[in-house]
Amino acid sequence: MRVIVVLGHVLDPRGIAVNRRAGRVFINRREYILQPADRCALEAALRIKDEMPAEVVVLPRSPLPDDDVLRQALATGADRAVYLAGDGLAAADDAAMARLLAAAVERLGGADLILTGATTLDTGQGQLGLRLAEALGWPHVADAWALKTSDDRLEVVRQEGAGYAVLEAALPVMVTVAPGALEPRYPDGARLINIYRGQGEVAAALETWDAADLVDADALQPLLERRGQEFPPERERGVRASGGLEEMARSAADALRRQVRV
């Protein structure tokens, strides 16, 4: 069985500070980590590999500054990773990445299962996995909490209202994995050293493909344009709710709804 995991990087939130008054994001440490939901997707793939013979191949969800997160995935147990490079790739959005990844999947010779995170930690966008499913013409299951595979079928647990339901699909299928669904494992120390030093078997597992060999330049044109940033008003502490008990309860409920979006 071949399982492809599509994963990406995100600036470690511990290294950034948002200054609402200045309207700026200060980056104290430019350190990237694996997108947490993608890391859960990788864990789901590795658990399949624990259970049955499977090859886990890793592809990037977005243009990467370097191959660091792919190395992390290899250190954690993935068998193979493909770094995508090329002119014009840097601006690619999810629509372009979905086209590029679909071509990469084809070049890999297809797969039985593709896993990726259901949402990104920073931008909160969940479209990449579903766009890729569409580009491949595959069915999808979104926001999985648990997976079970046999040779040709997949069982997925996903949230349904307050409870959880089991869904079943024939392979191949694309599954997006909810952040926090699985407790991810740590990398293996020796694999980590080898992949960073380019030594041992695992070093050969990291390849670089040129995007131009997969799709033409037009396909990489982004649809999305970034137009700026907005900052919430400066936090005002010490605000008291006014009115009688009922009015206070209503303002509290409204505030909670805004925060939690129940």
Partner: peptide, 16 residues
Amino acid sequence: FSSEHVALRRMIREFA
């Protein structure tokens, strides 16, 4: 610190 050492520290700090 090389990227190897950064990755190693990330792994160890998370474990710790």
